[in-house]
């Protein structure tokens, strides 16, 4: 593939534009379902697009006095770059599993760390105490959910014959059935659901942002375009992480009609679980979250790995 091929994949489909569109749509589903749970009508489907456009085109971008402009404005762009690259990789590999596009499962797991790091550094750069506090919570949260996340990730690795290439994992599940069809797969799936709830910063694990308490934490000084880019990056992750889960546990996106319908059902299922957890739980304290991920969730993940090892 030549350089323009790569750029096309990255910029338009299935990279930046497509994922951003889907991410904002997912955001709308989230808001709509939340509204219905709370007996409200909810916004129209284009609301999130208007919100982003407002930040990009109308609102002014405030920069705290005395901070490095390049770093302050660069961090949102870095986060967006990470999210775009992960989206492109996951979707391209799903479209053609035989091409080992850019990287494997471990690469994706590490690239997924770039957006939160960008958010934290952005918060640090703004020299605001509340931003520092929020970013430190983000870091502690990451420290706690990474342990069960890595453990849960080894279950598909074992199930797919010790392969870490995403394409091979998709093919292996095509032959042997999805990872989710086993006891270990189910447990690992739900462990990972909880981890991505925290990765995406959804309630009850939104203490890094905690609007009512530390006023959006690392985002506190961000406004206008810079905030818009951060929001866009978050929306993209909201779409691509469930797709990544589908790839790991349900054998990826299928190219036949019935398979694709199943994919949509799986995606909706993941989304509904996230939204229901979000709407039925209050925010927990950071030490509670750490204890939760390090004790029961990790224990469940260990059980899943043990079951997978014994072929269950």
């Amino acid at each position: 593939m030549n350089i323009f091929g790569y750029l096309g994949l990255l910029l338009i489909f299935p990279g930046f534009l497509f994922t951003a569109f889907m991410g904002l749509m997912v955001g709308w589903v989230d808001r709509k379902v939340t509204a219905r749970i709370q007996y409200r009508v909810g916004p129209p489907w284009y609301q999130n697009f208007f919100d982003i456009a407002k930040l990009f085109f109308i609102k002014e971008t405030l920069i705290p006095a005395g901070v490095s402009r390049a770093l302050f404005l660069g961090m949102p762009a870095l986060g967006l770059a990470g999210a775009t690259l992960v989206s492109t990789m996951v979707l391209v590999i799903n479209a053609s599993p035989k091409t080992g596009f850019i990287g494997d499962l471990i690469v994706i797991a590490y690239l997924l760390l770039i957006p939160p790091i960008a958010v934290m550094l952005g918060g640090f750069v703004s020299e605001n105490s509340l931003a520092s506090l929020g970013a430190s919570r983000e870091m502690k949260l990451m420290m706690s959910y990474e342990l069960p996340f890595i453990l849960a990730m080894t279950v598909p690795i074992i199930k797919c014959g010790y392969s870490i290439k995403l394409g091979e994992m998709i093919s292996a599940q095509y032959v042997n059935g999805p990872v989710f069809a086993s006891a270990s797969g189910v447990i690992a799936f739900f462990v990972m659901m909880l981890c991505i709830q925290a990765k995406l910063g959804f309630v009850p694990f939104d203490m890094p942002e905690a609007e009512t308490e530390i006023m959006a934490g690392p985002y506190i000084e961000y406004s206008g375009k810079a905030l818009g880019i951060f929001k866009l990056q978050k929306a993209m992750l909201g779409f691509i992480i469930p797709v990544f889960m589908i790839t790991l546990f349900f054998g990826g996106i299928k190219d036949d009609f019935s398979g694709f319908m199943k994919n949509i059902a799986e995606f909706a299922g993941i989304l509904v679980i996230m939204i229901v957890i979000k709407n039925t739980n209050p925010r927990v304290r950071i030490d509670q979250a750490m204890g939760f991920f390090w004790k029961p969730v990790t224990a469940a993940a260990v059980i899943a790995v043990a079951l997978a090892y014994f072929g269950k």
Binding site: I3, Y6, L7, L10, L11, F16, F56, T61, L73, G74, P76, A77, L78, G79, L80, A81, G82, A83, T84, L85, T88, I102, G103, V107, L111, K225, A226, G228, I229
Partner: peptide, 18 residues
């Protein structure tokens, strides 16, 4: 190499928005 190129392209998207 390809990943770096694409990260840089992603950065340019972000900076382009500014």
């Amino acid at each position: 190499g390809a990943a770096t190129m694409m990260l840089v392209a992603g950065l340019i998207i972000g900076l382009g928005i500014y």
